[in-house]
Amino acid sequence: MTGAVALRWVWSNVWRLWFSAAILVLWWVLSADSTSTFFPPLQRILERLHALWIVGDARRELWSSLGHFAVGYTVAGLVGVGVGALLWKFRRIGDAVSPVLYFVYVIPTAALLPAIVAIMGIGSAMKITIIVLAAVWPTMLNTLDGMRGVDPLKLDTAKVLHMSALRTVRTVVVPAAMPQIMAGLRHSLQVAVIMMVVSELIASQSGIGFFILEAQQRFAITEMWTGIIVLALVGSVLTVVFIAVERVVLAWYIGARAVERKG
């Protein structure tokens, strides 16, 4: 029984990876003798990647990007959950503020870049601002939505158990809304990674995005590719870490849903 389960687990992971592996092998083989400037051999890209990003100077760009991302995403997450919760709590204010929020929400942050650069200049503050401004929305709107969707019987139960308002939020509202809050945080994560790069493409002297753009301008195409691969890896690792955290935080939800589906 456990043997069969283990086998199925191995098999499902093999299945999940075979396509990626095939693409990599194909890329490696097909590009091996490439003389094209734009598509250098994968082997050379990986060698440069090691030299630049693992042991070389480009590590600085990586840390710079990750630093801005970490601050920006954390602030976006905290502000998103906090403001979302306030809009839920003060419903009437929320009703008045919501239209403005949705209006700002639909402006692509990219369109605000010139304004932000004009106001904040270039540098870390500008980059973090861009990340926060774009990434705050999914978390905020999902938090508001999730809290508004809490089963009224759960709130009655809180009253029956004589919970204070603060305890009700902590013990009932936040956990009940957590599946949606996490969905918002995940979306915000993707937006934050995108805006991290975008902020480095304009008037910037550091970061992975800056590295890619600068390499392209020097026609250092192999280096440009290393930057793109590092970016993809960073995005993947962040997503995997997020999913791992989500599995712990929402263990009860995943378990309850599995039971529900079995009927």
């Binding site: 019987l153 009655d156 139960t157 029956v160 956990p175 309850a256």
Partner: peptide
């Protein structure tokens, strides 16, 4: 104290 009909809604599944 109050006990509601729908235990699946009144219990907290995260606890």
């Amino acid at each position: 104290s109050v006990v509601f009909q729908d235990y699946s809604r009144s219990l907290f599944p995260w606890l």
